[in-house]
Design a protein around this nucleic acid. Structure first.
Lengths: 174, 174
DNA sequence: CCCTAAGGTTCGTTCACCGAACCTGCAAGT
DNA sequence: ACTTGCAGGTTCGGTGAACGAACCTTAGGG
């Protein structure tokens, strides 16, 4: 299974990163993991990714130590970010901010807030109130202000319409 | 030409970003543009990307306002990052650092230095000497300390063996 | 007028992604 | 015990992107 296409010979940190997280869907899966998604079917329903691709990506990320798999309370497998996976937050945030800055409006953009002080996180990752750069486990995601045309009804999409802290399981129970 | 596969319905900055820079080769092309690569053949020789793919990616990035094309002094087309493209630096740096932290050693890792003070840039993007977060036009890239097995001989690879500032054309003349 | 080189385009093959169908526990219902 | 339902996959053709090689076009130099 030669899943991750190699960028041969490139002795470069970027090429190494892209071999791990550069394939289609992978960064969106990791984003959802930060948002608290943990179950196979929740990733699938929220992202619309084909089962075979999702299975492949999750196995690969577990092998690479980005995610870890554990049997959940109900016997269902659950996936969670490892420390190594959580260290992808700055990269994820930088890409997310660039896209939001150039392609979204204030109404369609989600805000992220700092749990300690309630401040808002800016595109550079800094809290506008206490001037620190919080890690994801100190952040909460806020719902969009604008309503979407046909609101999706899968458990994750519904959970995303209320504020909640990152890295805290959602969807698995509701 | 539906080049950028769409991540439909995802009203998310990350999905938007990935539609622009999430395809294979795209971020490596942008990295090389930061390093000073500007000509079609230099991208091709340094990355080993198929001509058709490179042509497609460059056109798309120009259309999206990430790169701009200009006729160079010798009549050859030259590509350079726009402001919008340069704002991808934090994302690129975060991915590069993550990959270097987890997959490279001190000997294979490139260092980046701050032109103003000569300090070294850390994984968080901050200069270890003056404690600022320089933009790419204030940075220089240093060669690796370790030698590679069979050193590549294309103009860009040769230029990368000496320190030089980012965003300053290399390879085009040498 | 020929040769070379840059910057592509075209072409046939290969390979990843896709949706749909199928398989395999496991657990609750009856 | 048997069936139903669902989570979490695997398997299977079909499609489209990426690949390497060959070809084309323009410009300059000898």
């Amino acid at each position: 299974m030669p899943l991750p296409r190699e960028y041969l010979d490139q002795e470069c940190g970027l090429a190494r990163s892209l071999e791990i997280v550069g394939e289609r869907w992978t960064l969106l899966i990791i984003r959802d993991a930060f948002y608290g998604v943990s179950r196979f079917s929740d990733f699938r329903d929220h992202l619309g990714v084909p089962r075979a691709v999702l299975s492949e990506r999750l196995n690969f990320l577990v092998d690479e130590g980005v995610l870890e798999r554990a049997a959940g309370a109900s016997g269902r497998d659950e996936y969670a970010l490892t420390d190594k996976g959580q260290r992808l937050w700055p990269a994820l945030w930088a890409l997310l901010s660039w896209g939001a800055d150039h392609y979204l409006t204030d109404r369609t953009r989600r805000r992220f807030t700092h749990n300690d002080c309630g401040g808002t996180i800016g595109s550079d990752g800094r809290c506008d109130t206490c001037d620190t750069t919080p890690m994801p486990d100190d952040l909460s995601i806020q719902p969009r202000s604008g309503r979407k045309r046909p609101a999706k009804t899968d458990p994750v999409s519904r959970a995303m319409r209320t504020a909640h802290p990152l890295l805290t399981p959602i969807g698995a129970d509701s």
